[in-house]
Design a binder for these strands. Structure first.
Lengths: 177, 177
DNA sequence: GGTTTCCTGTAGCATTCGCTACAAACTTCT
DNA sequence: AGAAGTTTGTAGCGAATGCTACAGGAAACC
């Protein structure tokens, strides 16, 4: 297996591991174990840990981007789009990305420059994607509604993470019974 | 200085340090340095690090509770309350609590049982406090609006953390010019 | 075949982590 | 003063961190 392929293969497994265990658990030896190599080899394929994490995160961002692009349904009014997106976000296939997303956000808030940049890019991607999901004619209004939509999704993300699913249900208004 | 006072004094400085540096930087030796003692003494006053962090976080929660209780203005309609609270949250006196809050949320999302419990309690506190800020007669409607209010604040918290202040401004609608 | 380059395993460094054993102080009570 | 209990410092343990020096093996080129 030539080097680029091997690197891509490792990157894929690194992404899986980070997705499952989070950034905090992403130290070289566990990552290497998950990728089927040694820490020594990770630092052969990547100059240092920072570069490794950058590559892994951008790989994960590309994956999520693909998922979002595939999940492009018909534009809807705000409330409908919100309910649809919220349901999708909670699905087992997507929720791990959201967990990781919150970790990036928290680090950005603590002043981590790398996470702030990565996170900003991802968030703007979310925002654009939200616009495509909204059935609003006026561009300015659509932009404002996209912001409102994203904000509410992110807020529910936070509340659900600490167990306040009921508060989220009050907004998306799906009857529990 | 008797032991309880000394312990309370240390706790206060620990809280300051955690507020300034975050949970990730809260290891025993730096904490001890910030509190003016040694790691040895921290483990004399507290049985172990988990207990120390629990005490520190509940101390911080009490502080924030006091701040919120002091900031009880007149009830307002949703949009007005949102703008007021959002302005307050961004203030330098409160923002560090929000940074820390996001860190707790991220850990809860990653499966940290302690953070999930602490975070759940804090979030329910937020929710109740939001209710007191809303001028809505019907209790059911007020509850729903409090959830919507809290969700939007949390969402803006997330977006601001990665630099999307402009998206937040679209919701609270304060003209930039 | 020999040389040079690429790949990879072993072993270790220096630092930090939470935590502890041991023993000096210092207080307090008698 | 002497014994008992409370508070502190010193030193270190075993584990984990990111990273590196060194060398052996494989492969490719001449």
């Amino acid at each position: 297996m030539p080097l680029p392929d091997r690197r891509a293969d490792i990157l894929d497994r690194l992404a899986d591991h980070v997705l499952a265990e989070g950034l905090a658990a992403a130290s070289l030896r566990p990552l290497a174990r998950a990728a089927g190599t040694s820490d020594r080899m990770l630092l052969y394929y990547f100059p240092d840990k920072a570069a490794l994490m950058a590559a892994t995160l951008s790989h994960l961002a590309a994956r999520l981007q693909a998922i979002l692009a595939a999940a492009t349904a018909a534009p809807q009014p705000l409330e409908v789009a919100r309910a649809e997106i919220w349901a999708a976000v909670q699905a087992p296939a997507i929720w791990p990305y959201m967990r990781l997303w919150l970790e990036i956000v928290a680090r950005a808030a603590q002043g981590d420059a790398f996470c702030a940049e990565v996170g900003g890019g991802i968030a703007r991607g979310y925002l654009e994607w939200c616009e495509t999901r909204l059935a609003v004619a006026d561009p300015t209004a659509r932009q404002a509604q996209a912001a409102a939509l994203l904000i509410s999704i992110e807020g529910m993300l936070v509340l659900r993470s600490v167990g306040l699913d009921d508060a989220c249900a009050l907004l998306v208004g799906q009857p529990q019974a």
